[in-house]
Amino acid sequence: MSVRRLDPVQPESFAFSAENMAWAKKTIGNYPVGKQASAVIALLWRAQEQNAGWLSKPAMEYVGQMLDMAFIRVYEVATFYTMFQLSPVGRKAHIQVCGTTPCMLRGAEDLKKVCQRKIHHDPHHVSADGNFSWEEAECLGACVNAPMVQIWKDTYEDLTPESFEKLLDDLVAGRSVKPGPQNGRQLSAPEGGPTSLNDKSLYNGNRTFKRVEAPPPPPAPPAAAAPVAAPVAVAAAPAPKAPAKKVVAKKTAPAKTPAKKKR
């Protein structure tokens, strides 16, 4: 996180495509009349998608005008949420490297070094060829598969500097890449295959299971127990606390209450 400002180089104008416009109108319609400003995040997000992954000043003002909001209010929202990119991002990919503790412990720093070497020394800068940009993001919620990066809407997990570099190369070359764990593991299943429930005999139908019956309920206490217990508790009260407790504990449940109250 750092201070977020608009990019010094801004395009002339912005307007929604016909398709996005129809979508925007529908989205605004989701909210009651007069509360159209509620659609601001959705519209900004769509504007960012249309605008090659970043939010320009004209785009913000366009959304502000559309929603009848003061520009400062749109600006507040756009600078608050780090999902809005305020400067241009890479053509092929904007890489969000998770740097929060689990990922950091599992080697996110090395991924950042790869970014610094292959893309740009500083985050939020587009690489010389214009293909990539990167930033460090807060926890992206895939700690089991740490370290990981997010590119557009996909996550690439279980990375090593080598596999990460290969991923970048594949993206440049236009080869298809597969989101998810990059070390061959299945989703968040244990690495190197399952570690439990892996006894084959579990699945061949040979094992029989014995039904375990629930234990019978304890017999109800005799009706006379309570009156008998009470004098005991009272009698025990002046004695030191520990024995009193013992006596009460041995007795049946109802006796407990007066004793506790006494304490």
């Binding site: 201070v3 400062i72 507040e76």
Partner: peptide, 16 residues
């Protein structure tokens, strides 16, 4: 006037 940014980077400012 508005408050831009968040956390310790929150700033009070007018629009640009």
């Amino acid at each position: 006037l508005g408050a831009t940014g968040r956390g310790e980077d929150m700033e009070i400012t007018t629009y640009l």
